[in-house]
Design a protein around this nucleic acid. Sequence first.
DNA 1: GTCTATAAGAAGATAGAC
DNA 2: GTCTATCTTCTTATAGAC
Lengths: 206, 206
Amino acid sequence: MDTKQRILDEALTLFSEKGYANVFVADIAARVGIKAPSLYKHYKNKQAIFDAIIEEMNRRFVEQAGALQISGTDAAVDAEIYKQISEEQLIDLGKNLFLYFLHDDYTRRFRKMLTIEQFHDKKLADVYMKQYVDDPLSYQGMLLGMMSQTGILQTDNVEIMTLHFYAPIYMLLTVCDREPKREKEALKTLEAHIREFNRLYGRKSG
Amino acid sequence: MDTKQRILDEALTLFSEKGYANVFVADIAARVGIKAPSLYKHYKNKQAIFDAIIEEMNRRFVEQAGALQISGTDAAVDAEIYKQISEEQLIDLGKNLFLYFLHDDYTRRFRKMLTIEQFHDKKLADVYMKQYVDDPLSYQGMLLGMMSQTGILQTDNVEIMTLHFYAPIYMLLTVCDREPKREKEALKTLEAHIREFNRLYGRKSG
DNA sequence: GTCTATAAGAAGATAGAC
DNA sequence: GTCTATCTTCTTATAGAC
């Protein structure tokens, strides 16, 4: 990785841990293995580093739109699969989403940074909201809607059903971001949640 | 309100909007109507102001433990009420919790500050987690457990049922913290959520 | 308890050699 | 592109008069 990219990478790590204001240009430089003034050959100033991170984040989010939400294939393919989904597959869907959000290195650091800086910059609150609330609800709503149409799930309010599916995942994610030690417990809860979800919304006959 | 208390109040407002590092002692002083040096007659330094806020927050949280979660009365009384709860009362329970968290001035500013500073100070992450995840789940778990025992709600996993009740409320809260304009929409969603929750877990006969 | 003046230090950014 | 040296600005905090 070239220096310019490494600066972004190390800066993101630091920003996600301490917040923009608590990270000094010298800290970033030190992690890259250079001195602070050298950094100004790559970026105009500290703010420019931050802006470049946001830009890259947006680029990655668009790029990986599908992968971010689910299995990595596109929505139409996913829909075909989930028309005949089993309980175990539904659990996998939830777990994969949860673990991707939680473990993907870029995603995790971006989310932490967004969380810290969201009230400082309205744009970041918007990005966070889109990425972790509106997009997942919309994509999963589409999938669960398919399952509802084929009778695998039964409801007359897909939006609320999707909220019931995703809100616990979201909540467990915010828990594990703050207390990584609770991941194992969270995964157990997640599985129990989806089994109960399937029982509540699934066909009454197996 | 005396100067010492007003300093805390104005500092909390600023910290919750910009984060600790972006607030200058002179900003706080200006809002109180004094100059920065005068402020040092009341607090040893900037950090001491922050610490005093946290202390007051903890004190208030303990004080209002009951009120924070629900109607303002104590748990045993609440339990009696909710043994024979109607759907409308269940909706009120959720809405009251949501609106208290969202609108109570102190609560709102504290929560925003905790959100911003949580990765900077592990203690704050703990306070946040207790206040907005563990305590609500525990208190509401107790209430819903009562309702389950009297047959108003039916489940063999109270913990997951409570998660299904509270996670959507929590998620809508994080949405409205970031985008206050979505409150009206959130309240509609909240009501639809609880009606569906009641349909899913309620007695099959009216 | 509040003020003005100011010290002390931190952090961002630039200059210019290599 | 990286360095050392340095400038500049901003911010916390103190000194001492009123």
